[in-house]
Nucleic acid binder design. Structure first.
Lengths: 170, 170
DNA sequence: TATCGTAGAGAACGCTCGTTCTCTAGGCTA
DNA sequence: TAGCCTAGAGAACGAGCGTTCTCTACGATA
């Protein structure tokens, strides 16, 4: 029930953006009645937060799993995984950066999860690097690659970022 | 007249985002009547395009002027300028990336100017670098720094990006 | 079987907003 | 002065949407 709602919310919000999707679209896509929907999530904002929280866990989980399961320099594996993500047909950039652009700072709960996502990703990368300075630099390349891949529709940004990362790692 | 409208539009759209600003807000802030406003820009979308086009020219003009007027490695001067920009009190990230997040791909004219801005910036950086590979890498760092500075509210992202750029330049 | 509670479908409500229309006042021409 | 054009203020219109309400039908219980 809640899973169906979050699945529909994630697909629609990520593809079309938050404003462009109405609660009735979520109802139609999930098959969950409006009444139930509001029992599960008392407002659209709560649903957006639920969507972003689940996406944050899953996105970071998939990245960490990829890095853990492959051979090679972990920091460089990140960019291989990014390339795979960028080439997925429904890739539309970072859900959190997009939500930030859409919401400005008008919704405090949404801003909190966006910043949380960024902080967790940053901490993960620094942990892999074993060095704050290097980790921060890799983090910059990751965000740059995501943004450029999304806007210019060019997954190869991941390759260029990987090359730069390799140079920084030395 | 048109200038007053664009000034108001830029201030409001950049600060609050596009959806959050109504045509009546533009009227109130610019002092230009709704009738005149629609004579100058036949729709809100046309006004947004006008805002982004003017901002694109001015933003890139200011960056290029800074680089031209200062001593040092031009590629590194970019990050000094970014730091100044990030510390302006009304800094809220890249207007183009934000508009992309807000509009998805729902407005073709807006997407065109967003992509144009990115392409021009990329070409400028590659020109300064004198080398496509290096230019692309610097471009990645620029976008990463802007995104991170905006979301984490941390202008020092410019310093970290500069350090990384210096390492890449060698 | 009769009654009650529940859940879903969708109408309704209130608000916002993009866009257009109306009304009025003021200034220019004959 | 009389008539006319313009421009602005703001009302009006229509659509979209978040949220709530109503009505109906069905299933469970005694």
């Amino acid at each position: 029930m809640e899973t169906q709602v979050l699945d529909a919310a994630e697909a629609l919000f990520y593809e079309r953006g938050i404003h462009a999707v109405g609660m009735d679209d979520i109802r139609a896509s999930s098959g969950v009645s409006l009444k139930r929907l509001y029992q599960l999530f008392p407002s659209k904002e709560a649903l957006v937060v639920g969507y972003l929280e689940r996406r944050d866990e899953r996105w970071r989980g998939r990245l960490a799993a990829y890095v853990a399961e492959h051979q090679g320099q972990p920091l460089l594996l990140i960019f291989d995984w990014l390339y795979e993500w960028f080439t997925e047909p429904d890739f539309r950039g970072c859900a959190f950066i997009n939500s930030f652009g859409e919401m400005g700072t008008s919704s405090e709960p949404i801003m909190r999860i966006v910043r949380h996502h960024m902080a967790e990703l940053r901490a993960y990368v620094i942990g892999l690097a074993g060095d704050v300075t290097l980790g921060e630099q890799i983090f910059l390349l990751i965000d740059g690659a995501i943004t450029i891949a999304a806007i210019t529709n060019d997954p190869a940004a991941a390759h260029r970022a990987k090359t730069a990362a390799a140079a920084l790692i030395g």
